[in-house]
Design a binder for these strands. Structure first.
Lengths: 339, 339
DNA sequence: CTGAAAGCGCTTACAG
DNA sequence: CTGAAAGCGCTTACAG
């Protein structure tokens, strides 16, 4: 007992005599004593470990994940918490595995971009606090963190228009996904505000990946041979924009000389393209850190500490980052070449 | 006891009567029983968790880490293992923290690119098995996984020469780091094999990051104004190559028209540049998976199972991936423009 | 100031 | 086939 108190600098009532303390410390050093985390967790009902659950699409975690994860790790390290990663293949199919993860090995769980049905949400265990980053539906009882994607999209398109771009192609994410729909709404609102009629042929459904961006762009180009290029292309995220860039390069079209291009997220990739990508920045690092901080507040609450005042939903502002992929439109837009 | 046996399908001698078994299962379902991982770990002396320790340079995990980590996660998932990430700031300074991580919360530890002194290696605890990916010094007693970087560099430079490039600038990593030195050796060997004298002005010391690549390239360009460009530039890794690409773009030089460019690693970034990067592929995903498999074999061994035949050092072959950043050299190389 | 005691939730011999 | 018992390594009242 005395050893436990001394070695943990515990806040129990017990005082240990200096001499005893010294003896304990000496013995610990001599024996190279290391506390056992599992035993401590069992006695404490606390693992000091946070879980992170994310879907690996096409077998790989992506840069969006990496941005959030870096923020999560930084905050976790500040608070002496470990982070364990659970990978899922598919939200719908793996939602059933979530309760099994909350078995005492983690104190709280961060869900990255969860797409859960209302039933799946109802089945979530209530003894473990959750935080959801970009949930497709806000999860009741969980902390929900999102960014103001609609405003981000709105402002990006408004600014493109302000720079003279009028025909703006939007390559969107899967219809029905909240993030995709919000960007579409922002896009449409900005067009309407500038009295530019919405043109359905300038909205391509694609997805959040490079592959989907490439395919969607190629398809659009193929079906538009001989017609004028848009002035600018606004993509649902950076990955999609990079796929787009590839498809344009394949038929010899240059960004931003022939057409301007914008992405969304400001992941690492936006700075590694040539030209660098103009994009709507989501503060991924800050969002990841904040998820950890708020989750830890909840965990302390669960452990009987003072009840923290926690918003259920935290919205982060977005911001436009201007780089070289957006230029000024040429007077006479180039025609789409045959490929 | 019966509950434990039934719920775990345990391999104990005990047989449980079907009726008892049914009663237990029913009760477990009714009570929504979830085993407690900490208690199980304490009794089993096994956490079913692997640790991953990596340095975050400039606050961010990079794509090299992401490549390995994806492989680690995939293999860990296959074996029902969790993965917890420990971030370090600096190997030298944080080596002392390593023993503290081996306190029963993990069964084995994977070190990503460790740069450890012989003393730090000696201080590593011996009750926890290790695997080291790209260790700067092979760690005795640990599984060491590396790729054949020297051959990769040699073949890349040999092939560049075969395509007509003779003046080849090498932007290297920090001198003294094994990975950097091996690439330099490969570079020099390939020059020697083609009877091209080594030119010290064509070797720039930089580092493994985009920033360092950009700075080194800019510096080289500045000091070479009015002189001929190299035919090709071979960078220590993809990140460095991308920095290079930026520095070239800044002064209006185009890849591959004005100069060819090659990287190393084949991270995600190599496919997201325009033009896409020719690079030496290290099988990062496979290396991460293999680290997990061999580490698990060791852990089973530690737990008294059959001794596995494990090589101390596993070397993965590299492979050149041809993309668009390498072209054929022009007859008259461009001169370095004033910036 | 100190230490004997109970308990965290599980597992695995072992004796009936 | 079944269940009482000891033990994993820690923490925290609690009684001296």
């Amino acid at each position: 007992m005395a050893a436990s108190v001394v070695l943990n600098a515990a806040r129990t009532s017990s005082r240990i005599a200096p001499e005893t303390r010294a003896r304990i410390l000496a013995a610990a050093a001599r024996l190279r004593y290391r506390p056992n985390a599992a035993a401590r967790a069992l006695a404490d009902r606390r693992m000091n470990t946070l879980g992170v659950a994310a879907v690996v699409d096409s077998g790989e975690l992506n840069l969006y994940f990496l941005g959030l994860f870096n923020g999560i790790l930084a905050a976790a390290a500040r608070h002496g918490q470990n982070t364990t990663v659970f990978t899922l293949f598919d939200w719908e199919q793996d939602a059933a595995r979530l309760p099994g993860l909350c078995d005492g090995r983690i104190d709280g769980l961060i869900l990255i971009g969860p797409v859960l049905s209302r039933e799946a949400i109802r089945a979530l265990p209530d003894h473990t606090p959750f935080a959801a980053l970009h949930p497709n539906i806000p999860i009741p009882g969980s902390i929900n963190l999102e960014s103001d994607e609609e405003t981000g999209a709105y402002e990006m398109v408004r600014e493109l228009i302000a720079r003279g771009h009028r025909r703006i192609l939007h390559i969107s994410g899967q219809r029905g996904l909240l993030g995709a729909e919000r960007r579409i709404r922002g896009y449409k609102r900005a067009l309407a505000a500038a009295h530019i009629p919405f043109d359905a042929s300038l909205l391509m459904n694609a997805g959040f990946s490079m592959d989907e961006g490439r395919r969607a762009m190629s398809k659009w180009l193929e079906r538009s041979i001989g017609q004028p290029l848009p002035h600018a292309i606004f993509c649902v995220n950076d990955g999609c924009a990079i796929g787009c860039l590839e498809a344009l390069a394949e038929v010899g079209l240059k960004v931003p000389e022939d057409v301007s291009l914008a992405g969304f997220d400001d992941t690492l990739a936006a700075r590694t393209t040539v030209p660098q990508l103009t994009t709507v920045r989501q503060p991924l690092h800050a969002m990841g850190s904040r998820a950890v901080e708020t989750l830890l507040a909840r965990i302390r609450h669960h452990h009987g500490h003072a009840a923290p005042e926690i918003q259920e939903t935290i919205v982060f502002p977005t911001e436009i980052v201007w780089r070289d992929s957006v230029g000024t439109p040429t007077a006479a837009p180039k025609m789409v070449p045959a490929s």
